[in-house]
C-alpha cells in the first residue's frame, strides 16, 4: 500500500470519527445556520452564553463532576485489589470471582436499577447523590477491573521483588513502586469510568428521582429544542468535560508520581 492510500485512509478515519465533533463545535458558534445552508454565514457566541448564564446548568455541572470523580475514586478503591488478586494469583474459584465481577456487563443494568428503586428509598440513598454514585458503579466496575487487571498482567513482577529484597515493605512496594508503573492503566481506567458515569441518564433518573440534577437530566428535555446553537453548545460541553477531567486526572497522577519518588 503506497503513501497515497495510507493518507487517504487516515483522512477517512479522522473524517468519520473526529470531524463530526468539530462540526458540532462550529454549529455551536454559528448563527442562523438553517436548512438548506451547507455552510454557516454568521458566527456568534450566543449558544455558549445561554449555557453559561443558566445557574441551574452550572450547578448541574458541578454535581456531574462531583459524582463522576466520586465514581472514579470508588472504582479505584474497589477494583485495584480485585484486579491485583486476579492478575497475580490463581485462586481456587477464579472463574466464579470473574463471573460475578462481569455480571453487570452480561445483564441489563436497567433491571438492577428498577429492582433497587424501592430498596434505595428504604435505606435513604434514593434521591441523593450517594445513591446515584452507587448505581453508577454498576456499569463501570466491570470495566475498571478489566482494564486494571490487564495493567497488572503487563507488570513485571521481578521489579517488585527487587523492591522487597531491597528492604521495602509490602505497602511501600505497592504505593511506591507498583502503582507508579500502573499509571497508564489508571489513566485509561479513570477516563473511561468518568465518561460512562457522564453518559448515564436513565440510572440517574430512577435512583436520583429528579432530585439529583446532573447534566444529562437537564440535557434530555433540551435535545429536541428548536434552538440549535444552544443545544449544540450544551452537547459540546459533554465532549469537553472528559478532556477537562483528563487534565485534572493528569495533574493528580503527576503529583502522585512525584510523591512516589520521594518515598
Amino acid at each position: 500500500m503506497n503513501k497515497f492510500w495510507k493518507v487517504l485512509l487516515a483522512s477517512l478515519l479522522i473524517l468519520v470519527f473526529v470531524a463530526p465533533v468539530l462540526f458540532l463545535f462550529i454549529r455551536s458558534v454559528s448563527f442562523g445556520w438553517r436548512f438548506p445552508d451547507v455552510l454557516p454565514d454568521a458566527f456568534s457566541l450566543r449558544g455558549w452564553q445561554a449555557v453559561w448564564s443558566d445557574p441551574q446548568l452550572i450547578r448541574a455541572l458541578w454535581t456531574t463532576i462531583g459524582i463522576g470523580t466520586a465514581v472514579v475514586v470508588l472504582n479505584y478503591l474497589l477494583a485495584l485489589p480485585a484486579a491485583y488478586a486476579l492478575s497475580h494469583h490463581e485462586p481456587r474459584g477464579k472463574a466464579v470471582i470473574e463471573t460475578v465481577i462481569m455480571l453487570p456487563i452480561f445483564v441489563p443494568v436497567l433491571a438492577v436499577a428498577m429492582g433497587l428503586h424501592l430498596f434505595m428509598i428504604r435505606i435513604g440513598a434514593a434521591d441523593s447523590w450517594i445513591g446515584v454514585v452507587l448505581i453508577h458503579m454498576l456499569p463501570t466496575l466491570p470495566y475498571a477491573v478489566r482494564i486494571l487487571k490487564s495493567g497488572f498482567d503487563r507488570l513485571q513482577t521481578d521489579w517488585m521483588w527487587q523492591g522487597r529484597t531491597l528492604g521495602m515493605g509490602p505497602v511501600r512496594t505497592f504505593f511506591g513502586l507498583m502503582l507508579p508503573m500502573m499509571l497508564p492503566s489508571l489513566r485509561s481506567c479513570g477516563i473511561l469510568v468518568f465518561v460512562i458515569s457522564l453518559s448515564q441518564y436513565v440510572l440517574t433518573a430512577i435512583i436520583g428521582g429528579g432530585r439529583v440534577t446532573t447534566l444529562p437530566i437537564l440535557y434530555f428535555p433540551f435535545f429536541s429544542s428548536a434552538d440549535e446553537a444552544v443545544t449544540a453548545s450544551f452537547t459540546m460541553l459533554f465532549a469537553l468535560l472528559p478532556i477537562v477531567f483528563l487534565v485534572l486526572l493528569e495533574t493528580a497522577l503527576y503529583t502522585y508520581h512525584k510523591w512516589s519518588r520521594t518515598v
Partner: peptide
C-alpha cells in the same frame, strides 16, 4: 469513546 451516547445521538 470519549463522547457520551446521547451526545453522539445529537451528532
Amino acid at each position: 469513546m470519549l463522547i457520551p451516547h446521547f451526545a453522539a445521538a445529537y451528532l
